[in-house]
Amino acid sequence: MSTKQFLFSGFGGQGILFAGKFVAYKGLMAGKNVSWLPSYGPEMRGGTASCGVIVGDEAVGSPIVSTPDVLVAMNLPSLDKYESSVAPGGIIFVDSTLVTRPVNRTDVTVYALPATQMASDNGTPTLANMILVGKILEALGEFDEEGVRAALGKVISAKRADMLDVNFNAMKLGANY
C-alpha cells in the first residue's frame, strides 16, 4: 500500500478519534509509518470531531490531512464540509442513517452503510464507528482477523478485554455488509 490519508469525521461521542486510532495502530503493527492528528478545541465539546490518519511506507512528513484518500463521514455536516476535499479517485464512507443526502462527487467510490441503525439493531449502539471501520478494511483488502484482533488489543484497555470480541463482531458486521 502506498501512503494513504484518512479523514474521520462526525459528532463528538461517535468514536471518531477511537476509529482513527485503531486504523493507525493497524498500520503500525503492519510495519507502516503512521500519524494521527485530532482536531482539538471548543468544537469538540458536543460539536464536530475529526482526526486525520496517515499510513504509509515512507516516513510521514506533514501529519495534516488536507486531501484525504479516504473520508469517513459519520454525519451530514462532515460530508458537507469535507466532500470536496477528497482526492480524485478516493473513497467516501458515509453513515447513511445520519447522512441523509447522496454524495455528489462522481470521481470517487462511495460506500453508504446505515451504521448507526446496524449498531442499534446489533445491540451495540456505540459501535457504529467500528462497523464503518470494518467496511473500510474490507474495501481496502486489509481485513485479516489476526491483524484486526491484534490492533484491537492495543486500543482496548486490558480492563475492558470483554469488549474485544464485541468490537470485532461489529467490524465483521460492517465488512460483510
Binding site: N33, W36, L37, P38, Y40, P63
Partner: peptide, 10 residues
C-alpha cells in the same frame, strides 16, 4: 506547538 502536542505517532 499544538500539533506536536496533540498528534500521535509511534
Amino acid at each position: 506547538d499544538g500539533t506536536m502536542g496533540q498528534m500521535m505517532e509511534p
